[in-house]
Structure formats: structure tokens, C-alpha cells
Design a protein around this nucleic acid. Structure first.
Lengths: 247, 247
DNA sequence: CGTTTGCTTGACAGCATTCAACGTTGGTGG
DNA sequence: CCACCAACGTTGAATGCTGTCAAGCAAACG
């Protein structure tokens, strides 16, 4: 169905000059709500960065779990597969979001994380994260919130996959994407998709053809303009109403 | 689609004599891997129990989040809904499993937890859980593993909802159920379902009719016997192969 | 014993998949 | 700079799975 081959990024972490306190994602990341002094200590733990080239994997299913990762720049997808080889994109991650939380449960990652464009992540060794979060309750609380948010997010996707039809799924996907982009200072109406139609399809439990058709239909309804991976949302409320009101 | 009415259980926590160290679910619960001495301290936090009658809610979406709950006996479903009223069962929980983790992210529960039979839960005040897990790394680690396991579980459901056809979904559901029951000392082949066909359908993103048909088909294939809510699995490997091999 | 609820089954319609053909884009090398 | 190729995306037609609706039945409950 999808290519199983996975190119691994070189595992060499590099040290950069950027700090958590100086990071413009700090209010969306683990450090949210931390005291400046505590953050200084946290920076001693999160000193390593890793560059991941487009198409390379940050980690793969089965890899030993040692760290979680905060996306510093770029864009990722996570992809899981069942024993028989069925694959599915389980999420898309952008700057400020955490990757690797799946690995805690078994000390092994259960999905692949692949960069959709050249990216950079902060490496957060998990042992040390746990240790620090034993000392700083702000950090502990924020970490728990992030894990919980991931649970709630996944359940939202379950609702989407279980209840919505193709157009609604795509609308929900686009709205979610634009909301997250907006929180990062980007336009809420002009989106440049980083993922292929096939990846969107996989994430939404549909096929490439259905996604393409759904884009066309949303465009015919005057809700957006599609030009390759450039999406111009002309009627955000209309998109939203696709989900709220009666179909 | 589904009834929205939710009867709330009386909020009176009761104290029982049973301790964590004496609980037969201790190896499946938060206390797994804890030292006996630490467990004693933990018991001072987890002193309250709540009885929930069949059909009553342990908590509901929007309720303030104060505690997580460990199922001591009985059986629950969690149910979420989107703004427009679409509902979906997001999971079924049995003894030893944790409820309420969704509430951490926003300090409000985002789903309902409803007892499918008369049940009993241990109330674990979250503030105190965080405090204790700052002192005991075993507890901290176990809690993180449980949250991570929930993430992985949800992603497994996403894969099911996104990729499988009706019979496969039902097979996967039954296998998952029997595995969990087996881990609790019950038979892996004789299952007494606690949920209705409609609840199974909602969980699997299907309709009541399709579930009923799928049960009949699995029975016709000689994989199991259905008699109301009593399921006798006669060919567990065959069920498993439904998922592994080519459909 | 009657009523209600839950479940099964049939017929039909609809939405998404499948398969295939065609068009477009972007990258590569001449 | 252009030509070519491969990957990606769009669209059409036919198939098939699942949803919908309704009828009938069984089980549970009072």
C-alpha cells in the first residue's frame, strides 16, 4: 500500500546556540508556564538538537525509546502499522509539538516519525525529563497536560474516523491545520500543505481518489481554492458549518 | 443518534477496607512495580472508593477534573461527542484500568464515563498523585507508562477505524477483549459481553445492523458461536488470521 | 402476561473504493 | 534551455461495502 522503506537520519545530535528561554515556541512547548530560573536548568537537559532531512525518519517503530523530541522547525508525520502491514498516518506534527510519547509505554517506539520537510528537533532525554519533573511541578504538570492533550487529540480523530463522511473529514482536517498554524502566527486562510494527498488520505482513513474528489467538491461549493498544495480558504465559516450543521 | 441523557451517580465517596497491597489488580494498576513501603503511602492517598450503578456516569464531559479513577470492579464505557452532537464510544474499561486521563489537559473532562454494570472505582486525587509521583520514581514511571499506553491504544483504534472492514473490526475488537479478560484470569474463549450491539457499533465506527451481520458472518465461518451477549470463540486462530492474512 | 428493549434479517440506496486513463508538476540530464 | 521522466494529482465508470429503513422476533422486565 505504502512504501515501507525508511531512511534513517544520521544520529549525530548537534549543539546550537538557541535556548528554550529564547525560543519563540516556548509558550506552546514543554516550557509553558515555567519560571525563568527553572527554565535555565531545563536548558541544561535540552541541549541537543537534531536536523532531519525531508524524507528521513527521526525514529522508527521498534527503535529503543530514550528521548522525546520537540519540533523546533519543520514538519513531521507519524505513521504506524499493524502486524499484517496495514499502514496509517497517525498524525502531523509542527513546531512546538512533541514527538515520541508513544515510546514510553514499552520502552520502544511504536510508530515512525518522518520529516515532511527539512526539520530540526530538540532532543529531550526522557530519564532526565522525568527527573526534572520530579523537582519542578510546573514542568511536571505541563508534561502531563501534553500527554493528556495527545489522548484527547487521538480521540478526536477516532470520532472523525468513526462518524464523518469524506468531505467532513477533509474540512475538519483543514480547520485543525489552520488553527494550529494560526497559533504559530501563520495565516489562517492561506495554507501550504506539506503532505501529499495520499498522506492526507491515509490519515483520514480514505483513499487518494476520494481526497482529490473532496477537494474538488469543497472548491465547487466555493469554500476554498485548490492549486496543488496551495490551499486558499475563502469561507472558513462555511467549512465550519459543514461540521456543525446538518450535512 | 444515541441518548444524550446521563444519570449522575451520587458523589459520595465511601471508604472500604481493601488496600492497594491487597488488591488483586495491583499488578495491572498504577501500583505495578512499587515497593511495598511506597505502596503503603500510596494507600493513604487512594483511600476513597465510589460505587457506580449500571447506567450511571462516573463523570461527564465538562465536569471539573480533580481525580483519575482506577476500575476496581465492573465495566465502563467512555463516550465523547463533538459540538454538533455526534457521539462515539471511545473505549471500554475493565478492572485495573484507569479512567479520566483525558481531563488533565484542560482541567475538565472531555468525555463521559458510564458504568455498563454495577461497578466500583478507586478515587485517585490527581494533585496528590502528582505529588507522590514526584517522590517515587517507580510510581511516576508507571503513571507515564499508563498514559503512553493509552496513546498507543487510541492509535491502534485509529488504525482499525481507518483501514479495516466490518468483520475485521469486530474480530479485532473481540480478540482485544479476550486478551484483556485473559490477563485478568477469565476464559479467553467464553465471553459475556457487557455492552450492547449499538455500543460496539459506535466504538467500531459502524452501525448496529452491520455489527449484527458481522457476528452472523463470523458464526457462519465457524469462528464463534453467538447467543445474545454470550460469545463462544471456537477458533481463535481463525479470528486472528482474519486480521493477519489476506482478507 | 404484556410491554419494552434489544437484536436479526431483508431490500434498497448511497458513498467510497477500485481501476484505469489522462494531465500536471518538478526534477534531471542532455 | 529544453526535453524527458517520474511522481503526483484529477477524473470517470463500475463495483461493493455499509448505511438506512422497516419488519419481525426474542429476551428482559415489571
Amino acid at each position: 500500500m505504502y512504501a515501507v522503506t525508511t531512511i534513517r537520519a544520521s544520529a549525530t545530535p548537534k549543539k546550537f546556540e538557541v535556548t528554550c528561554s529564547g525560543c519563540n515556541m516556548r509558550e506552546l512547548c514543554l516550557t509553558q508556564g515555567m519560571q525563568p530560573d527553572d527554565m535555565r536548568l531545563f536548558e541544561n537537559v535540552v541541549y541537543a538538537r537534531r536536523r532531519i532531512k525531508r524524507g528521513e525518519a527521526l525514529f522508527g517503530a521498534g527503535d529503543e525509546f530514550k528521548s522525546v523530541y520537540a519540533v523546533r522547525s519543520g514538519f513531521f508525520k507519524t505513521r504506524m502499522s499493524s502486524e499484517d502491514g496495514r499502514e496509517q498516518v497517525s498524525g502531523f506534527q509542527m513546531a512546538g509539538e512533541l514527538l515520541g510519547l508513544d515510546g514510553i509505554s514499552t520502552d520502544q517506539h511504536s510508530c515512525d516519525a518522518v520529516a515532511l520537510e527539512d526539520s530540526q528537533v530538540c532532543v529531550i532525554p526522557f530519564e532526565q525529563l522525568e527527573q526534572l519533573s520530579r523537582e519542578f511541578s510546573d514542568l511536571q504538570r505541563q508534561f502531563h497536560k501534553i500527554m493528556s492533550r495527545e489522548i484527547v487529540r487521538d480521540q478526536g480523530v477516532m470520532l472523525l474516523l468513526g462518524n464523518m463522511r469524506a468531505e467532513e473529514r477533509l474540512a475538519a482536517f483543514l480547520l485543525n491545520l489552520t488553527q494550529r498554524l494560526q497559533a504559530r502566527g501563520f495565516s489562517a486562510t492561506a495554507v501550504s500543505l506539506r503532505m501529499s494527498r495520499e498522506e492526507i488520505a491515509s490519515f483520514l482513513g480514505l483513499t487518494l481518489g476520494t481526497i482529490s474528489r473532496s477537494f474538488s467538491k469543497l472548491q465547487d461549493q466555493g469554500l476554498l481554492f485548490v492549486r496543488n498544495r496551495q490551499i486558499q480558504i475563502t469561507d472558513p465559516l462555511g467549512l465550519q458549518q459543514l461540521l456543525d450543521g446538518a450535512p
